[in-house]
Amino acid sequence: MADNILEIRHLRKSFGTHEVLRDIDFDVKKGDVISIIGASGSGKSTLLRCVNLLETPTSGDILYHGENVTGKSVNAAKYRSHVGMVFQSFNLFNNMTVLKNCMVGQMKVLGRSKAEAEQQAMRYLEKVGMAPYVNAKPRQLSGGQKQRVAIARALAMDPEVLLFDEPTSALDPEMVGEVLSVMQDLAHEGMTMLVVTHEMAFARDVSRRVVFMHEGVILEQGSPASLFGDPQCQQTKDFLSRFRNS
């Protein structure tokens, strides 16, 4: 238990009378690469947004290194600085250059010096292949480029876990590859990642564990080989067969 970074216990989330998440339980260990798959509307994104406290869970606990972060006296901002997030719609700061985007959080939140922040930002921008674009504004970049900058921005904060909320769903098909390859590199380097995705190839080849969600509950989870090779539930079989046929 000691190496669990996140433990999610009996998590529930309702929007009005509509219950989106129903009793979710799972752990994230250091170095885990977990893909969360499932049909649209099954609660995958809501789960991820709850983990980052962008949505307030209706009930249940989220433990970060054994410490409950859903309580009232918790500093949500501080917790979020340890848990990076990459969004479907990139959410880069439109008023800043690529470099500033990757520096502002380090300087304001972590209190790093300008030189240190710049060095760190450049390191990760180089890693995602966006170093030549440091002076560009987000509006001048393509979708794939924006998403790579967003990944660098999250990495520059030295997070313990990175959450990806459908990082390639808003991209043109030819840009999906560049983002996935960056994510694959990260996985191989031992980054702890939680990825909501519709890219079955990524879930199968890169992740260590695959979680299948259906109507707000985790129906099935396991290694990619077992979940894709020998799904137990009928819903999982149906979902996967739709992807195979398309």
Binding site: N52, L54, A77, K78, Y79, R80, S81, H82, G84, M85, F87, S89, F90, N91, L92, F93, N94, G105, K108, V109, A150, R153, A154, M157
Partner: peptide, 14 residues
Amino acid sequence: DPGQTEGAKAIGMT
């Protein structure tokens, strides 16, 4: 766009 706020919150800004 609310995404700007979420992006800032996600990296731990107050």
